[in-house]
Design a protein around this nucleic acid. Structure first.
Lengths: 169, 169
DNA sequence: GAATTATTGACAGCATACTTACAAAGTGGA
DNA sequence: TCCACTTTGTAAGTATGCTGTCAATAATTC
């Protein structure tokens, strides 16, 4: 078979890690939304709720560090969660700039109810692989995300966030 | 060590495949943009240009199938590429609805110049892993994306798109 | 203690993503 | 031929993700 001249195939795209990460992220979101459509909650909103449950009284800036989401974007995410009455925002007494985040009863209940759907969604994403391959992929992925943490625009700063929490509030 | 009660840790987020895919996608975009910032081109725009170079005269709907990007979103992507004069849109003579896409001279030149930066970006994404692990991760990822193709909102339809191209235009 | 610097939340603006809806144009069958 | 269905591009609406900027407030430094 004669080799094709440069620029005739899509290989430069289909085999690029960046392209595959994008596709897989889109697939992951689609599966999450499908499994959780009864709850009207996005993956980002879910992560934010879990973080607020884990760190009650956290503020928006620290929340963005704990889940490695962009601080600007998180503003509107919080707005939507507040509009759905899943969280509350209360001004801090010690620092007039910050607003502290707490789950409402309804938010706590929602997290409890959505759990099994989320678990099902996460399982479905890796389902097509053999069990052994799933473990390998997940391990490599965790390793890669961790090692690339600083390359991200919003590096994960889970520990920092926790420290500041107890100290100043 | 006593086990913590449910809801105190972030494990439900940090170890979830969906969360890791999101983080990795964001890291991949950040690296791409950093390496290619001299060219003012996003990863999506790059993929679209490659596809148009591979299939000159393709229309927007088929383009969306070839790179598995949403058809609605692609409209604005094409608009921006046209505004930057990297592509041209010409009405088809056979079907008044479709607009055919071609690279301009400037688009062809840009693709040639950006190539090494893109390669560098793609390499950087997996750089932190050992060489053997990179191969394993990439292979599993390609497999998983392929097997999950139908779960995506916009499944990849590379072959279908090619067939229609020669026939009707 | 006053000036500089840093932090916080808010906002504007751009670029993906996806949903639904729609009009124009094409296609097939009764 | 006429009608129903499909296809194509487009647009509106929602949600992320990032870049900036800004004002208010804190923290630091001299």
């Amino acid at each position: 078979m004669p080799s094709k001249p440069t620029g005739i195939t899509m290989d430069a795209v289909y085999t690029a890690p960046g392209y595959l990460f994008r596709r897989m992220q889109q697939i992951a979101v689609a599966i999450f939304m499908e499994e959780c459509k009864a709850f009207d909650l996005t993956p980002v909103q879910y992560a934010a709720l879990i973080a607020i449950r884990t760190h009650p009284g956290i503020d928006a800036t620290r929340l963005s560090a704990v889940i490695a989401f962009d601080r600007s974007t998180l503003g509107s995410v919080i707005e939507r969660l507040e509009a759905k009455q899943l969280i509350e925002r209360k001004p801090a007494s010690s620092d007039k700039r910050v607003k502290l985040l707490h789950l409402t009863k309804s938010g706590t209940a929602l997290l409890r109810e959505i759990m099994s759907s989320v678990d099902r969604a996460q399982a479905r994403m890796l389902q097509p692989l053999k069990a052994a391959d799933r473990k390998v992929l997940l391990a490599l992925l965790m390793q890669l995300v961790d090692l690339n943490n600083e390359a991200s625009r919003v590096p994960l700063r889970a520990e920092d966030a926790l420290e500041h929490l107890g100290k100043s509030i």
